[in-house]
């Protein structure tokens, strides 16, 4: 039955995509604003580039390495950013979620489709940046290994799936607690530090690295970025992907569970 739901969602996907693009165009000012809120990696680029220029390479990162790293981080973030926790929080609070519960598609699948529908526009914006990155940082900063490039695509898709599962879990918490957005805030704080968004993870003290590698944060940003700029060998990459897969499955199971329990509670007590 769930499989049928997914199939239905896939059939509905082209129209969701169309709506998504039309919305992005209609609200292009908001879109630009949103784009500007994700420029943090560019600021970090300026910062770390300066650090490297001033005192020489830092932990194996030269100025150009930093540039490549943060440009890649920018692109990956564009492709994998998910805001579903905010949407869900609002809809649960205002009771709009009832409409979704009545539809024949599982709400999480519908949310996922809506979030994906924004991607083409983002792609349009991040592709030029990606190309610029390629030329500015030089070809040798992007991996030439086709296998690794394939793994990069895989891990980016996985990063999106993982981020969505986590955000959906946090969003579904709104069924139970008032301050689910505070949880999201907390999550973002951890994410910024532990995913490689502020600092490449390899610059952290060595004793922290194994823990950081096992946590889900790296899989959401650091892993695809490091793959793209050729900092990982195939074995390391596969190891990272295995961890990523584990977290994706765990988070989606958790999201489905929390959402299901929340929806049952919601229909028992009302909004």
């Amino acid at each position: 039955m769930r499989g049928a739901g997914v199939a239905r969602a896939l059939r509905a996907f082209p129209s969701l995509l169309r709506v998504g693009v039309a919305e992005a165009v209609a609200y292009r000012a908001e879109f630009v604003v949103w784009l500007l809120t994700t420029t943090m990696p560019l600021i970090m680029l300026a910062l770390w580039g300066e650090v490297a220029r001033e005192g020489g390479p830092l932990g194996g990162f030269s100025g150009a390495d930093f540039t490549a790293y943060f440009l890649a981080a920018f692109v990956v973030r564009q492709l994998t950013g998910v805001w579903v926790a905010w949407d869900m929080n609002r809809e649960i609070r205002e009771g709009l979620i009832s409409m979704r519960l009545l539809r024949p598609i599982h709400p999480l699948v519908a949310y996922a489709a809506e979030n994906l529908a924004v991607l083409p526009m983002r792609l349009l914006l991040s592709l030029p940046v990606a190309l610029a990155a390629l030329f500015i940082a030089g070809r040798d900063h992007v991996t030439h290994d086709p296998a690794l490039l394939g793994l990069f695509c895989l891990s980016t898709a996985g990063a999106w799936l993982l981020g969505f599962g986590l955000m959906a879990t946090i969003g579904a918490l709104a069924f139970f607690i008032e301050s689910s957005l505070a949880v999201a805030d907390l999550w973002f704080g951890l994410f910024f530090v532990c995913s490689g968004y502020f600092v490449p993870l390899s610059l952290f003290p060595a004793w922290l690295r194994p823990t950081l590698d096992l946590l889900p944060f790296r899989a959401m940003l650091g892993l695809p970025v490091e793959l793209l700029i050729g900092r990982l060998g195939r074995a390391e990459a596969l190891h990272g992907l295995a961890i990523e897969l584990f977290w994706i499955l765990a988070c989606w199971a958790l999201a489905l569970f929390v959402f299901g329990a929340g929806a049952r509670r919601y229909s028992a007590y009302g909004a």
Binding site: Y27, A29, E30, V33, W34, L36, T37, T38, T39, M40, I43, W86
Partner: peptide, 16 residues
């Protein structure tokens, strides 16, 4: 631009 829910986000991230 009325549908500007993420205005605070923008403000926050520039301020960062």
């Amino acid at each position: 631009v009325v549908r500007l829910d993420n205005l605070a986000f923008l403000f926050g991230s520039v301020f960062d």
